[in-house]
Amino acid sequence: MLQQLLMLFGFFSLLLALVFWVNKAVSLLDWLMGDGQSASTFLQLTLLSLPTILVNLLPIAAFAAVVYVTNRLSSESELVVVQAAGYSPYRLARPVLFFGLIVGLMVAILAHVLVPLSQRELDLRRAEIASDVTARFLTEGSFVHPVKGITFYVRNISAAGELEDVYLSNSREKSQRQSFMASRALIVKDDSGPMLLMFDGMSQTYELAAQRLSVTRFDSFSYSLSGLLGETRTRPRTLRSTDSLALLQASPALQEEIGRTPQEMFAEVTQRTNKAVQGLVICLVGFGALLIGGFSRFGLWRQILLAILLLVVVKTLDNSFGGMIDDTPSLWPLRYLASVLAVAMALVLMWKAAHPRLRRRKDDTPARQGKMS
């Protein structure tokens, strides 16, 4: 049973990861192509976003694997045979328990270590993309607007990186409008920031108040681009990009750098731990819900709907308590309340499956009373 659970878990994880990855990749591709980035940059960012996707979908994939395997064992009468041999529901739950522990360990490694590392690298890559002036400007044959009030056009880019037939317009100032045209140009980096070196062109400055146009021709002209694009500032660290051990051992300097209190950091660690715990408990809930159905030629669709309903209840409560903890970090013990409730649900369902005679007695009582009358 454990082998079947692991096989189906891998299948559902791959399927859900592809669905979520495609959804994430569409918006990411639109943003990267708008900034003129390459396909390799897109691939790097999508790979860095995978740990964040996996940490949320692995418990759902584990739940789907447990429900599918249990339903198949029940439809093939294997569970009935095993229960007739004297196996209790608690003993049958051992493979599911081991499977849930494996899933919980995987989620814990992702949540506490891999997701913060990938998020940190993703923030750095996004900062590099935002400050990459060349990629934002170099789009052949089309007018680009890197920021509001700036228009840039280049007809062609040679193999040596030289820009041909360049046009630059700056309408950010209220008093005047500037435009530059050059037959050739280069983008170079200086100590003060990126520079646009233009050759064989002219500049036009239009004064709005005086309605006067000034035209200047030049052989070479340098124009600073750092002031046009503004500064892109990113904090060295954020709460999501810091691993759990560093959060628990956070020094005053790290607390000031992240901008969070020790309670908020501890609440974040409990959230990550709770994701791993839920990888275990929702597996037990799904198994217990299907175990109470017994054998039926019509299938266990009612029990499957019950398992899904219980999963929705657990996740809804977890999200509600999470919102309360975000507002008041001192309420962090509530983070585990939904998981404790899920464990109680699983135990009640298994107890009910272990005592089927109680249900049969209730069903037989009206029939006996009818015979006596």
Results as ranks from 00 to 15, higher is better:
Ala353Val: 03
Val281Ala: 14
Leu341Tyr: 12
Gly294His: 03
Glu121Ser: 06
Ser175Trp: 05
Ser75Tyr: 06
Phe287Met: 03
Leu79Ala: 01
Arg125Asp: 01
Thr234Arg: 14
Thr41Asp: 01
Ile282Asp: 06
Ser158Lys: 11
Met181Thr: 05
Met7Asp: 02
Ser131Pro: 00
Pro194His: 13
Gly322Cys: 04
Leu101Tyr: 13
Ala367Glu: 11
Ser244Arg: 13
Leu337Cys: 10
Lys24His: 11
Ser13Pro: 13
Gly294Arg: 06
Gly259Arg: 11
Leu124Cys: 00
Ala354Cys: 04
Glu78Ser: 01
Leu208Val: 11
Ser74Phe: 01
Tyr90Gln: 05
Glu231Ile: 13
Pro252Ile: 07
Ser203Tyr: 07
Val107Ala: 15
Thr328Ala: 08
Asp35Arg: 14
Val269Gln: 10
Gln369Met: 11
Arg240Tyr: 04
Leu305Lys: 12
Ala354Pro: 00
Pro329Met: 08
Ser27Leu: 08
Glu256Leu: 12
Met350Phe: 06
Lys371Ile: 07
Phe180Gln: 04
Ala62Phe: 09
Leu334Tyr: 14
Leu291Ser: 02
Thr216Asn: 15
Ala307Phe: 02
Tyr167Gln: 02
Glu140Ile: 02
Arg72Met: 02
Val314Ser: 05
Ala253Thr: 09
Ile157Cys: 00
Met372Gly: 02
Leu347Tyr: 13
Val96Thr: 11
Asp191Glu: 07
Ala160Pro: 00
Cys283Ser: 15
Glu256Gly: 13
Asn170Arg: 04
Glu264Tyr: 05
Ser203Ala: 15
Ala246Gly: 03
Val314Lys: 12
Leu311Pro: 01
Met345Ala: 11
Ile187Val: 10
Phe295Leu: 03
Leu168Ile: 04
Arg357Thr: 10
Gly100Pro: 04
